[in-house]
Design a protein around this nucleic acid. Structure first.
Length: 468
RNA sequence: GGCCCCGUAGCUCAACUGAAUAGAGCAUUUGACUACGGAUCAAAAGGUUACAGGUUUGAAUCCUGUCGGGGUCACCA
């Protein structure tokens, strides 16, 4: 891709992270891979605009993050394309033809052909500008705390799958048309015919995905292969599985499309053309600023070194953002209102972080007073019994979340637990309790709560502070 | 148009997979021991689960239809 990461990407990446951790928590070994779309006409558009108007601008010279810089030229291209299209329409070219006939689009297409032919100049520029994009992405991922076991690039995988299609053709599973294009007939399965190879023998998206699936199942022994991809590609994955099965690969059954819903704005879908995308970096920065502001107002951190404070703001800001996204069932479309931004009160990440900080504060004081922290009494309040039951539920919820690939279950569980603690703590004394055995009991209970909260949030990629 | 998904308080989300008065948070109104940490807690108000039928002892959940929203049906990825 050649546009900066947005809120939709964040949801995708947080899902990859948290579902992986959830599966690991259920005893699975997980490998995460990222497939980067680094080739195609869209990259050429940015390259072309940069050549025409960039004057050699680089991330270093402009101080801009690489992905933002490349994105800027993509926008520049789009604007020029619009302009040229209008001019042609004014000259009497039919509307549906005008865009195709613009000089700038033709140039971009020529560039793509040159890229595919390995033209040195084009390929070098492509490498440079792609490099900028990756640098930018790396920064964002790093800040979000996300990394991958392996990254694949489409420029290296787009040729895969051709031999599979040829083999299928030889076996008579696929059919070839007069123009030599190869198709798979899925009408009997209630779908349409699907193109697998172009007439000129080049591959399409589906060809590539057939190849990468085959590659992964050959390289690794997989019990399950989960694609975390937006639900606008439901049809694609339905077809992918079907075609693989027709080719006789039984492992196609272990392919799972974790189809997540789009992130929408109150007025509807985010559209890069209309500039209504929520930029990932801006959003993270906003969250950081809000965390800082709130903390400063409360003024509980005055004795904390500045460096630690900054780490904390980052932790809380990211906690708010991540929790906000993860608490929603992945399958559902979610709405994000940039104006109201993300709350720090109520059912939020910071609430859970705050709960943890309070517990830790009590435990610190208890340690100073040399209090015992162990279960010595069986005398329990009704609320305590409730909490113990809830704690006992944790493994079940982890199992459920893993089975359903839904980290939202863990997020909501953590909130329930934090809320239970808040209620309990509000009307039950812990440090002031005079009966030593009961006090030790309660300390042991809240320590367990803190541990479970930490574990749950760890699965979601959210860290909990000792104080905040 | 064909196929797929969705519609729960003003808003953002839950509801253990068919169970009893459908739960939270935000926003609104009100209250809380000098606070073992108030980014908290308590209370009020807010619902015919889009609508109409059906199955069932029982439906937000399953079936049919209607309305509304989204996605997809590319020799883009």
């Amino acid at each position: 891709t050649n546009t900066p990461l947005n809120l939709g990407h964040i949801r995708n990446n947080l899902l990859v992270w948290s579902v992986s951790r959830l599966l690991e928590a259920n005893g699975n070994h997980v490998m995460w891979v990222n497939l980067v779309n680094d080739r195609g006409i869209h990259i050429c558009k940015s390259m072309l605009a940069w050549l025409k108007t960039g004057n050699g601008e680089t991330p270093q010279s402009s101080g801009m993050k690489g992905d933002h810089l490349v994105g800027k030229y993509y926008v520049a291209f789009s604007n020029e394309l619009k302009k040229q299209t209008k001019e042609l329409i004014a000259k009497g070219v039919p509307e549906d033809e005008a865009e195709k006939q613009t000089p700038i689009l033709k140039q971009a297409q020529e560039m793509l052909v040159k890229w595919e032919q390995g033209d040195k100049e084009v390929v070098d520029l492509w490498k440079t500008m792609n490099g900028w994009v990756y640098e930018g992405f790396d920064k964002t991922y790093q800040r979000l705390g996300i990394s991958f076991d392996r990254t694949y690039y489409e420029s290296q995988t787009y040729l895969l799958g051709k031999s599979l299609v040829q083999a299928g053709l030889a076996k008579g599973i696929f059919e070839q048309q007069e123009d030599s294009s190869v198709w798979c007939d899925l009408i009997a399965d209630g779908l349409d015919k699907k193109l697998l190879l172009r007439g000129d023998g080049t591959s399409v998206y589906m060809t590539q995905d057939l190849g990468t699936a085959h590659q992964r199942f050959s390289e690794y022994k997989l019990d399950e292969h989960i694609y975390v991809v937006g639900n606008e590609q439901n049809y694609h994955f339905q077809v992918l599985k079907l075609v693989l099965k027709k080719l006789g690969f039984n492992w196609a059954d272990s392919i799972c499309h974790l189809s997540y819903g789009m992130v929408e704005l109150p007025e509807g879908k985010m559209k890069s053309r209309e500039g209504t995308v929520v930029d990932a970096d801006d959003l993270v920065q906003d969250m950081y600023a809000t965390a800082k502001e709130t903390s400063m107002e409360l003024g509980r951190l005055d004795d904390m070194p500045v460096e630690e404070q900054e780490k904390l703001f980052e932790m809380v800001g990211l906690g708010a953002l991540k929790y906000f996204i993860i608490k929603v069932d992945p399958k559902k479309t979610m709405v994000f209102d940039p104006k109201e931004s993300i709350d720090f009160n109520g059912n939020t990440g910071p609430f859970i972080q705050y709960t943890h900080a309070r517990i830790k504060s009590i435990l610190r004081k208890a340690a100073e007073q040399d209090c015992k922290n162990e279960v010595t009494s069986t005398e329990l309040l009704p609320k305590e019994i409730e909490i113990i039951k809830l704690l006992n539920n944790f493994p079940t919820r982890v199992k459920e979340g893993g089975d359903e690939h839904s980290p939202a279950i863990i997020a909501n569980y953590a909130y329930d637990l934090a809320k239970e603690f808040s209620q309990y703590y509000h009307d039950t004394s812990i440090l002031k309790e005079e009966n030593a055995a009961i006090k030790a009991n309660r300390l042991a209970l809240i320590e367990t709560i803190a541990k479970v909260l930490t574990k749950a949030m760890d699965i979601l990629g959210i860290t909990l502070p000792e104080r905040m």
